[in-house]
């Protein structure tokens, strides 16, 4: 068994596009690397230098504060130079295509591109068009792998393992990239996943992703170890997905009363930014079960781990190319 680590614990992907394409071992590799960075930070080693001399470009075609800040800081902690490129709206409105923008960033010497885009698949197409490592920081309603990784990391920190845990994702599953990435990551690591929300916000045939569906938070509360409260986007409300915010909060909001009926050690996550009083009441958000701020802290080390592993792989490929 001496060779086990070479196959099971080695990162071989050029890009991080989603959790769909990762194995349980690869996910664990990222989590372990993040834990290592967290340990180093706790020991006072906050500035590391593995990415010195490289350039990480943040290419954000959709508004984001926390994810972009988190990626920027992660890159800086690893001593990379960073470029921030923010373009709101579609590429068409600027008169330059998304791919031309990306090629420009590549020409500036970026080694890794962190991309947030409103269209599913945009990072995947980018990976085909440019020769840099692409990290998906959220593509439309498709995937948001680093958010799911930090959610999973936070749960693992609380419980040691995901195996056998019941995790309930609550809210707008239909439009949630966080939900999709969480479903992939959690099921691969052996958790039971329940998606819970109004029937208008549960996508068709979602059971085929290996999850259970519930339309009642109260019904699944007792069996749930961990609740992830997805953000409700107010603008969706106009599309008649549910009658009112008040009615949504009544059935799906996490409040003190529901905490009473939940397991004693239930873990409450929310990817944020949270709508206090909608998905979650202030007493729960700030209460003892909440790990919302741990998620933010962990987001940094998760993104460091992703940048680091992709960088290592890039170095390896460059060496192989040079010797070939």
């Amino acid at each position: 068994m001496a060779n086990m680590e070479s196959s099971a614990s080695k990162w071989t992907k050029k890009h991080l596009l989603g959790l769909e394409g990762l194995s349980a071992e690869e996910i664990t590799l990222i989590l372990d690397q993040a834990a290592e960075f967290k340990r180093l930070a706790a020991a006072g080693e906050t500035k590391l230098s593995p990415l010195a001399g490289t350039v990480v470009a943040n290419l954000f075609f959709e508004n984001s504060t926390r994810t972009k800040t988190s990626f920027s800081l992660a890159a800086k902690r690893l001593s990379a130079d960073t470029i921030d490129f923010t373009a709101s709206g579609s590429s068409l409105s600027k008169g330059e295509t998304f791919f031309d923008t990306a090629r420009n960033i590549e020409a500036m010497g970026a080694n890794q591109v962190v991309v947030r885009h409103g269209t599913p698949g945009a990072p995947h197409l980018l990976a085909k068009h440019v020769d840099v490592a692409v990290l998906n920081a959220g593509d439309g309603t498709h995937e948001h792998p680093t958010q799911a990784l930090l959610d999973i990391f936070t749960v693992r920190e609380q419980r040691g393992s995901l195996e056998g845990l019941t995790v309930t994702l609550v809210g707008d599953i239909l439009h949630s990239r966080v939900a999709r990435s969480n479903i992939w990551g959690l099921t691969k690591l052996g958790a039971d996943v329940i998606v819970c929300g109004p029937s208008t916000l549960i996508p068709p045939e979602v059971e085929r992703l290996g999850v259970r569906v519930s339309n009642s938070l109260d019904e699944v509360l007792a069996e749930t170890d961990c609740i992830n409260l997805l953000r409700i986007q107010f603008e969706r409300q106009r599309n008649a997905y549910f009658p009112s915010i008040r009615e949504y909060a009544h059935f799906f909001g996490m409040n003190g009363d529901r905490i009473q009926r939940a397991k004693d050690d239930v873990v409450i996550l929310a990817p944020g930014p949270i709508n206090r009083g909608v998905e979650i009441t202030p007493d729960v958000a700030d209460g003892s079960h909440s790990v919302i701020l741990d998620q933010v802290t962990n987001g940094l080390v998760i993104r460091m781990a992703c940048l680091y592993l992709l960088h290592q792989r890039q170095q390896e490929l460059a060496t192989q190319e040079a010797t070939a």
Binding site: T141, P204, V206, R208
Partner: peptide
């Protein structure tokens, strides 16, 4: 259908 769910499209 299933693939629109999978892809978020």
């Amino acid at each position: 259908g299933f693939f629109s769910t999978l892809l978020g499209l």
